[in-house]
Amino acid sequence: MALYDRSSAGDNLARGLGWFSIGLGVAEVMAGRSIARWMGMEDKTNLIRAYGVREITAGVGLLALGDPKPWIWSRIAGDAVDMATLAAGMENNPRAGNARIAFGAVMAATALDVVCVQKLHREEAYYRSLPVPDYSDRSGFPRPVSAMRGAASDASIGEDMRTPRILRFQSATGPAQSQSAQG
C-alpha cells in the first residue's frame, strides 16, 4: 500500500503542480495554434494540443487520485518528451529563440517535479520506517473465535430484518427444490 500524507510539504507542492498542469494543459488545448506559431513550430499544432490533454490528465490525477507520486513521474516523462520535441524543432527555425525560452521553462518545471518526487519518496520512506502496530491479538472476544461463533445466534432480530422465507437459500433436498422442479 502506498503511504502518503495529504497535508505534507511534498503533497502541497504536488497539488500546486497539479493546478499548473491543468492551466498549461487548457492553454495548450485552447491556444495550441498560437503557442505553436510563437515557437515557430506550426506543423506541431496538433501535437501540442495532445500534450495539453496529457497535462490535464496529469493535473486531475495529482489533484484527485490519492498518491501523487505516479503522476509526478508521469509529468517528468512528459517533460522529457516536451524537451525532445522542442530540441528537434529548433533546427532551421527562425523563431528558435522563443523555442529556447520554452525549453528553459520546461527545464525549470522538470526541476520542480524532481524536487517534488524526491520529497514525496522521502516522506513515504519515513512513514515506512515507523514500526507497524501489531493488532493480531485484538479480537474483542473473551474466548477464541471458534468458541464465539454463533454465541449470539439467539439474538432478537425483527422479522423486517429477516430475509423472507421464500427468498432464503433452501436445502438441496428441501421442498423448494421439488416445487420448482414440478413448476
Binding site: 501489531d134 493488532y135 479480537s139 474483542g140 461463533r149
Partner: peptide, 13 residues
C-alpha cells in the same frame, strides 16, 4: 489493503 486493518480483521475471525 491496509496490513494492520487486515491483521485486526483476522484476529476477529
Amino acid at each position: 489493503c491496509v496490513p494492520e486493518r487486515l491483521a485486526m480483521a483476522k484476529a476477529g475471525g
